[in-house]
């Protein structure tokens, strides 16, 4: 229980996936103009990463590991994740239309998101078991959601500010991200 709690806090806040590992930067910069869109993206990422961590970790533990094929992990993981996202999208559209309505549009955006593959590879390199992997995946995705929602909130305010010409657009967003990264640095003493 204690290990799980430590994984939860460390992956969501201390080693934030966007602000200290630079994974999932594309959606972080691209889908953070409005808070509600950012929250939707965050929800979809939580959903996909949690399922993907479970599936990849089961595949690694019970198929790749015992057969000594663990050197194929990168190829297998990327294909499994791409197929899984497609499958989840089809499943939600058919069976859970209400959830599909709020998350579905973001699912195709996540297929090539490096955070999903990054979490799967981290789970292997850190030697997590299946339960720890799922918790790590969930926590990482929560960290992503926290970062993107805060960023969207700040960007809505930035719209009204007078920004020097060359910094308009993505440059000021990166400065904001840098300041957020500094703030999150303060958590590094927590664990």
């Amino acid at each position: 229980m204690k290990t799980l709690l430590i994984i939860l806090i460390s992956s969501s806040i201390v080693n934030n996936v966007v602000l200290s590992q630079f994974l999932g930067l594309c959606p972080f910069l691209g889908v953070s103009k409005k808070t509600e869109t950012a929250a939707g993206m965050g929800g979809a990422v939580i959903f996909v990463i949690t399922i993907a961590s479970f599936v990849t970790s089961v595949i690694y533990k019970f198929i790749l590991g015992p057969t000594g094929l663990d050197y194929l992990q990168t190829i297998v993981f990327i294909l499994v994740i791409a197929a899984l996202v497609q499958f989840v999208e089809m499943f939600l559209r058919k069976n859970v239309p209400s959830l599909y309505k709020s998350l579905g549009v973001f699912l195709p955006l996540i297929t090539t998101n490096c955070a999903v593959l990054g979490v799967a590879l981290n789970n292997v390199s850190d030697g997590y078991n299946v339960l720890e992997s799922v918790v790590n995946g969930f926590a990482t995705a929560v960290g992503f959601t926290i970062a993107i929602v805060i960023m969207a909130g700040i960007r809505e305010k930035i719209e009204y500010n007078d920004i020097p010409g060359p910094f308009k657009g993505s440059a000021i967003v990166l400065v904001t991200a840098g300041l957020m990264a500094m703030a999150f640095f303060g958590f590094s003493g927590v664990i």
Partner: peptide, 16 residues
């Protein structure tokens, strides 16, 4: 980590 964002933001501004 924060320095990476600052360096990139200056690069983007210069490129603009």
């Amino acid at each position: 980590a924060p320095g990476a964002f600052f360096v990139l933001s200056i690069l983007v501004a210069v490129m603009n």
